[in-house]
Design a protein around this nucleic acid. Structure first.
Length: 457
DNA sequence: TAGACGTCATACCATTGCAC
DNA sequence: GTGCAATGGTATGACGTCTA
C-alpha cells in the first residue's frame, strides 16, 4: 500500500484524494473532486492528526530529496548508436534490423526454402502433435528471442525479438530491437501484428522459454496478449530424432553435427545479457552486432532444421546415412502410430555398420512384427539382434525371446534356454519364477508326450 | 530460474491362456 | 467355471535437459 493511501486511511480524506484512488504523486495526479459524504466522518483524534502530519513531512522530504527518481525511476543514460533502423509504425517507434534471403540460401547443408515443402500431416507426426495436421506451414513464423537473462519472471526482458517468415520462397528476417528498457509496448504490438498474420510459431525450446517470457511482457506492458498460435517446438523433435548421437541436443551441436554449419566469431549465449547492459550504459551499438548475427543464425537454423527433418522423415530411411538418426526416426514413427514407416526406418538402421544400433533397430523391428501378429519374423529379428548386440544389451533380448517362444510359438525348450541366459542379477525374483514355471511346464509336456507314444513309464 | 517434454521405473488395467 | 499368472498398453511420478 502506498503512503498516500495510508495517509487517507489514517486521517480520513486528504487534500486532492480519496480512499482507493491512484498512487500517482500529487503534482502529476489530476485532482479528483470528493463528493460530500452522506454521514459526516468522525474528526481525527489529536494523536492521529500528529501521525498524519509526521508522515506528510516524511513524504515531503523524500520527494524533495529524490524528486525525479521517485516519479520516473532511475534515469536511463543516452544509448549509443543503434544496431537497427528506427521506423514509425501505427504502434509507435520500433527499431528493426531487416534482411531478405534468397530461395537458394542454405544454412550449412540445408536449403532454407525446403521448410516450405514440409507437409502439415508429416510435421504433425514428426512433432507427435496431431493438432498441427491442419496448419498452413506456408505462413509459419520463426521466432527466437535474446533476453537479459534466463531467470524468467518479471525481471527478464527480451531485448531482441527475431522473426522470420517466407515471402514466396525467400525468407524475410525482422529483428525487433529494444532501444531502452521501458519501451517494449511498440515492439510487442509489432510482434502481435506479425503473429496475427501467421498460422503457427516455430521455435527451439520456445514452449518453455521464449513464449512464456513474451506472454509475461505483454501482460506487464498492458498490451493485449495475442491469440495462442499452434506451436512447433523443434527442440523436442530434434531430441527424439538425434538422441542416439549421445552429444546432447543443444542448438549449436545440432547445427554443427547435423547441418555441418560452423559459426565463426559467434557470441556465447551467456555473454549476451552483459553486452546489452553495456549498450544501455552508453556503449557503441556495434558491440551488439554479434548478438544480432547470433539471433539470425538461430532463425535460419530453425528453417533449415525443419526442412531437413521433414525431408528425411518423408524418405522413410531412404535418405540419411547415420543409423543412429534412422533409429531415432523409427522411434518417432512408432510413437506416431505409423508402423510401416517405423519398420522401414528400423530396417534401414539395421543395415548400418554400428552393432549396438543394429541390435536396437532389430529389437524395434521385432516389436513391430509382434504387434502385427508375425511371431516368427519377430523371433528372427531378435535372433539377429542378439548376434549384433553388446554384452549389456543381451538381457532384454533373451527375455523377449523367452516370452515369444513360450507364448507365441509354444516352444518350451527354447523359451527355457533363453530364460536361463538372462543375467539373474538383472531380473531377480521374476526371472526365477519364470525359469521354474517353464521347467514345470516342460517336464509335464514331456511326460504327456511320453504317454502319448505309449512308452513304458 | 521456469516450464515443456524427454526417459525410466513402477503401477494398474483388460485380456488371454493355463491348471485344477 | 474359477482363479492365477503373464501379456501389452497406458498412466503416473521422479528426475534430466534445454533456452539467455
Amino acid at each position: 500500500m502506498d503512503l498516500k493511501r495510508k495517509l487517507a486511511r489514517l486521517g480520513g480524506v486528504g487534500p486532492g484524494g480519496k480512499p482507493g484512488t491512484s498512487a500517482t504523486p500529487a503534482p502529476a495526479a489530476p485532482v479528483v473532486p470528493v463528493p460530500a459524504p452522506a454521514v459526516e466522518p468522525e474528526a481525527p483524534s489529536a494523536e492521529q492528526a500528529a501521525r498524519v502530519a509526521m508522515l506528510r513531512r516524511m513524504l515531503g522530504e523524500l520527494t524533495e530529496r529524490h524528486g525525479t527518481a521517485l516519479r520516473r525511476g532511475p534515469p536511463t543514460p543516452p544509448p549509443g548508436p543503434l544496431p537497427a533502423e528506427s521506423r514509425t509504425t501505427p504502434h509507435g517507434v520500433i527499431h528493426v534490423a531487416e534482411r531478405l534471403l534468397s530461395p537458394e540460401h542454405h544454412h550449412g547443408s540445408a536449403p532454407l526454402a525446403e521448410a516450405l515443402d514440409a507437409e502439415a500431416s508429416l510435421v504433425a507426426s514428426l512433432a507427435l502433435q496431431p493438432s498441427l495436421a491442419g496448419v498452413d506451414f506456408q505462413r509459419m513464423l520463426f521466432l527466437d528471442t535474446e533476453t537479459t537473462g534466463l531467470a524468467g519472471g518479471t525481471g527478464t526482458v527480451p531485448f531482441l525479438v527475431g522473426l522470420a517468415w517466407f515471402e514466396g520462397r525467400s525468407l524475410r528476417v525482422h529483428q525487433l530491437f529494444l532501444r531502452r528498457l521501458g519501451e517494449e509496448a511498440p515492439l510487442l504490438r509489432e510482434l502481435a501484428a506479425r503473429m496475427a498474420q501467421a498460422s503457427c510459431l516455430v521455435t527451439f525450446n520456445g514452449k518453455s522459454f521464449d513464449w512464456p517470457l513474451l506472454r509475461t511482457r505483454f501482460v506487464l506492458n498492458r498490451v493485449p496478449v495475442p491469440a495462442e498460435l499452434p506451436h512447433l517446438d523443434l527442440l523436442h523433435c530434434a531430441r527424439r530424432v538425434f538422441k542416439h548421437r549421445g552429444s546432447g541436443t543443444r542448438l549449436v551441436h545440432l547445427e554443427e553435427q547435423v547441418l555441418g554449419f560452423h559459426r565463426v566469431g559467434d557470441v556465447d549465449g551467456a555473454l549476451i545479457p552483459e553486452l546489452y547492459f553495456r549498450f544501455l550504459r552508453g556503449a557503441e551499438g556495434s558491440a551488439l552486432t554479434p548478438v544480432l548475427e547470433h539471433n539470425v543464425n538461430d532463425l535460419l537454423l530453425l528453417a533449415a532444421l525443419l526442412g531437413l527433418l521433414a525431408r528425411r522423415f518423408r524418405a522413410s530411411g531412404a535418405e540419411g546415412k547415420d543409423p543412429r538418426d534412422l533409429l531415432g526416426f523409427a522411434g518417432v514413427a512408432l510413437r506416431a502410430r505409423d508402423p510401416e514407416r517405423a519398420l522401414a526406418f528400423a530396417q534401414a538402421a539395421a543395415a548400418g555398420d554400428s552393432g549396438a544400433v543394429r541390435a536396437e533397430a532389430l529389437a524395434l523391428a521385432s516389436r513391430l512384427s509382434r504387434r502385427g501378429g508375425d511371431v516368427r519374423t519377430a523371433v528372427a529379428n531378435l535372433q539377429r539382434a542378439l548376434a549384433s548386440a553388446r554384452k549389456e544389451q543381451t538381457a532384454p533380448l533373451h527375455l523377449s525371446l523367452a516370452k515369444l517362444y513360450e507364448h507365441g510359438l509354444k516352444d518350451l525348450p527354447r523359451a527355457l534356454h533363453h530364460a536361463r541366459l538372462c543375467p539373474p542379477a538383472e531380473s531377480g525374483e521374476a526371472l526365477r519364477r519364470r525359469v521354474e514355471r517353464l521347467e514345470r511346464k516342460l517336464s509335464k509336456a514331456t511326460r504327456a508326450s511320453t504317454l502319448d507314444l505309449g512308452e513304458p513309464l
